[in-house]
Amino acid sequence: MGQEIDFLGRFHNATKRDYVQRVVEHDKAECAAIAKQWGFDYWDGDRSHGFGGMRYDGRWLPLAEDMVKHYGLKAGDKVLDIGCGKAFLLYELTRACAGLEVAGLDISQYGIDNAKEEVRPFLHQGNATSLPWPDASFDLVISINTFHNLQVHELDQALREMQRVSKDKAYLCVESYRSECEKANLLYWQLTCESFHRPEGWRFLFDMAGYTGDWGFITFA
């Protein structure tokens, strides 16, 4: 079984959030419905519908460097990002490790069409529950803030697929909560989340699906 690793904390905590304003300023249900179309509004529209404009700025290079170092990646290794979005992290991984072979999958065709052009040819539109690669295809499989967008029956299948295409190394990060305050903040802030679990609940689901990789949690304090 893997271990909990906090790769994302310093990036997540750098953003200040007004949780109550997120709920009262706009029709939250309408915003969530628009976000789940995974189109322009989610990626590059108003902040109330998603990222509010996701543009490359190089911020993910330190994360890529941490992953390359931790997992001992080298030229010729293959890495898959499930829920790659615009593939900024995949691009940074190729900068952090020259010669790395990358692939990405995302539900959003808009995200792929507007991805970092250097890695766009290696991206596929699809669902995490059915990965178009053979068993043990990748030296490292990652998924950052994606699996909590799946309903529980989809989540089990996606975890099994992630395990299937990985040789032995994997890392996923999901949103979670450790207290009633964090649960309320998560509910206020999220737009696309379908699976709400405490860390121990997530670990139970990992075990049930046979997932043996590493994991991390994003919380909203």
Rank of each mutant, 00 (worst) to 15 (best):
K74V: 13
L8C: 07
G72C: 11
Y19G: 01
A14S: 14
V79L: 01
D27N: 04
N13Y: 05
W189I: 07
G72I: 10
K167P: 07
G213D: 07
D168Y: 13
A136C: 14
Y211T: 11
A35Q: 09
E161I: 12
V141K: 01
K116F: 08
S195C: 04
R203M: 02
R178D: 15
N13S: 14
Q109N: 13
D66L: 04
L100N: 02
A221H: 01
E200Y: 08
G111M: 02
E30K: 09
L186P: 03
Y42T: 04
F220R: 11
C181G: 11
H124G: 04
H197C: 11
N13A: 15
A98D: 12
K78H: 11
K74D: 07
F220Q: 08
W189N: 02
Y42K: 09
E161H: 06
V165C: 12
V165M: 05
W202T: 11
G83Q: 00
A14I: 13
I107K: 09
A115T: 06
Y188P: 00
L80D: 00
R198D: 12
E154K: 06
W215H: 13
F138E: 00
V174L: 04
L155T: 05
N185Q: 10
D214Q: 09
F51H: 15
G210I: 10
V23L: 05
M162W: 08
D113P: 08
L186M: 08
A96F: 06
Q190R: 07
R10A: 15
N149W: 09
W133E: 01
L100K: 06
Y171R: 03
L187G: 08
G45C: 03
T146Y: 03
G213R: 10
A115H: 03
L172Q: 01
M67F: 05
L172T: 02
S143A: 11
F51L: 14
Y110K: 07
Y110S: 11
A221V: 10
H12S: 09
A103G: 01
H49K: 15
N145V: 13
I144Q: 03
E25T: 13
G99L: 14
K169E: 13
